[in-house]
Design a protein around this nucleic acid. Structure first.
Lengths: 349, 349
DNA sequence: CCCGCATCTGACAACGTTGTCCAGGCTCTA
DNA sequence: TAGAGCCTGGACAACGTTGTCAGATGCGGG
């Protein structure tokens, strides 16, 4: 590409690179400031001839309304914030997109940030968004104390929590039925003859992990199967430790014949372990994973609908802004058991 | 959850739900407006005692600085816009995240939107972002004419295009080496004895698709293999048509012994087709896919580094804002051939 | 011919913040 | 103790837009 010289950076001190303002447009069109405002906003009461002149000046100058000033004046930003754990996680992609679509339908833009599962970073992000006066917030919480949001909510920032409940404040929450999903998944294994079933999940301080563990316990109890401590591994999530945990469960004195995995990352690692294992072990995982049907055997999962979570949350948010929603609620979306083979294997050994 | 009454929506007419301003804080602390500003911004020249009083008032009132007003005054928004095709696509997740991280390192927030591969929607989004006076834009273009951005760029909006070049304007671009990657992938198949190699890719009007097709042709030509029209399928991307295209290539009078797929969606579908096929067909795909190593055989791919694309683009953007970058450039990042089995199968039949 | 009315236009203040600049009080020295 | 100089604090304008309101213009009717 030729080395066409570019503008010499933005000159320090210039604001917005000296963009034309309505005043400039008005001067050029020979009309008043307010008339330009009217044309820009499509307000009535402007002669076609005047409008044409103004439009001409706008095009000639490359004028674009400064929404910062507009926001300052009007009080609404037409933007909402989304704070999630990690934009790169395949679970959050569809969720973000769903929130974005709802926002778009309401003429709002989406500002989003990743908390990286760090409560401080979550708070920092949320408050930065509040400082920009987003109209509302969709938060997938990393922390468990959200009292810092109280003044914001009181000041009118619509807020909906997703995937996990808010901590120590009363707010709208949209969740998957983690308990029921896990219970059904484990019951599915039991129905296929398993009694020694392992559970590998995240730290129970994370709400979803705790609920799924509870579902596992409930299913076992319903079937009258006492759970051994060696069958449960909690709080491991990095691949190396998951691998060890799985191997121990499979090798112990009371080896499991099936494993229930608490989230997609764990599931993937366990699939790798089982692929190397000598005899077939049944597996049901929480969260769907791509290509799960192409593996041998296909992976049976408890799928949750990330897009529906996002959509539901965003819709509630805009209903809060309408004023049609007055009472915080907790909404639980159902999960779906998708059978593909790995969960239907009979007990071996 | 109990039906605790919430504030009755935002009262119409109230701005920001009557949030306290610096003036309120100043009144309560019994100091001047500017002193509050100084405390909020950590500027020097305030006695510890005064600062304490101000801080107290801030906490008591739940004051949070209004960044809209700040932006209006200062001219910089400390936010950048990212326009991509689809936030839910696993390719863009890591890219977004990388852009976000760089933005964060520069104290900026990220506003993003999906164009859904629609040029009009791309333009609408970009202009909405410009109206908010984002400091810069990272754009994965859907359209092929970006002259509408000229006034914006002239006005000082830093702009970097990613994944595909800009149309009809001179701007920074960060791309993967689509041509070289595809050429190497196809050459890899040729090196393993294949001569009848199929290509299934997206519409050549999309830059990446055209480049990959060019790479395919180049590799074949380098090996002195004339390409038959029946080996190429362009512009198909929905699963059903990809399936048919693959089946035709495999069944025709000159059946292919290997297929090169032009993107991850096509690759996934072709994997499904090959899984049902009677004899082994080699496969190399452009773009990596998760769990590709667990399939039988593992899927050989030409991987591009989405995060590196995003990071590089964002870094260039902030260098533009620094003023240290004066000339638009075209940067090409290398791809990487990841061999896992499917690309090393010998020709069958 | 003048008045009233409707229509169109523009002057002005306000939104909440920050930059500039000056005033007042303090300390330190001669 | 007076004066110089420094430090702290505050008054005011400005950023670009929109809401309010009043002025200008034109038209028709009395």
């Amino acid at each position: 590409m030729p080395d066409t010289p570019r503008r010499a950076g933005r000159l320090p001190g210039t604001r917005y690179g000296n963009r034309p303002t309505m005043k400039d447009v008005a001067a050029r069109a020979g009309v008043g400031l307010k008339t330009v405002s009217r044309v820009v906003n499509g307000e009535p009461g402007v002669t076609p001839e005047t409008e044409r002149r103004v439009q001409e000046a706008i095009d000639a100058l490359g004028f674009r309304r400064n929404d910062s000033a507009r926001v300052l004046r009007k009080g609404r930003t037409a933007s909402i914030g989304l704070v999630l754990e990690d934009l790169a996680d395949p679970f959050y992609g569809p969720l973000s997109r769903a929130v974005e679509e709802v926002a778009r339908a309401h003429g709002a833009l989406l500002i989003n940030g990743s908390s990286a599962e760090d409560p401080d970073r979550e708070q920092e992000l949320v408050l930065a968004l509040c400082a920009r006066r987003v109209d509302g917030l969709v938060v997938i919480p990393a922390g468990d104390d959200h009292r810092y949001l109280e003044p914001e909510i009181k000041a009118g920032v619509a807020t909906v929590f997703v995937d996990r409940p808010a901590g120590r404040i009363d707010a709208d929450v949209v969740l998957s039925d983690n308990f029921g999903g896990a219970r059904d998944g484990v019951a599915h294994l039991i129905a296929h003859g398993h009694r020694r079933i392992g559970f590998i999940g995240d730290m129970p301080r994370i709400h979803t992990a705790a609920e799924r563990l509870r579902g596992y316990r409930a299913a076992m109890e319903d079937a009258g199967i006492p759970v051994k401590g060696s069958w449960m591994s909690l709080g491991v999530t990095d691949p190396e430790r998951v691998r060890r945990a799985a191997e121990e469960m499979l090798a112990g004195p009371d080896p499991v014949t099936a494993i229930f995995t608490g989230n997609n990352r764990v599931t993937v690692t366990v699939i790798r372990v089982l692929a190397e294992h000598s005899h077939a072990v049944a597996l049901v995982g929480f969260d769907d994973i791509e290509l799960a049907d192409l593996l041998q055997p296909g992976v049976t999962v408890v799928a949750q609908d990330a897009a529906a979570l996002g959509r539901t949350a965003a819709e509630r948010l805009f209903r809060q802004l309408d004023g049609t929603l007055l009472t915080p609620e907790r909404i639980e979306l159902p999960t779906r058991l998708v059978t593909r083979g790995s969960g239907e294997l009979p007990p071996a050994g």
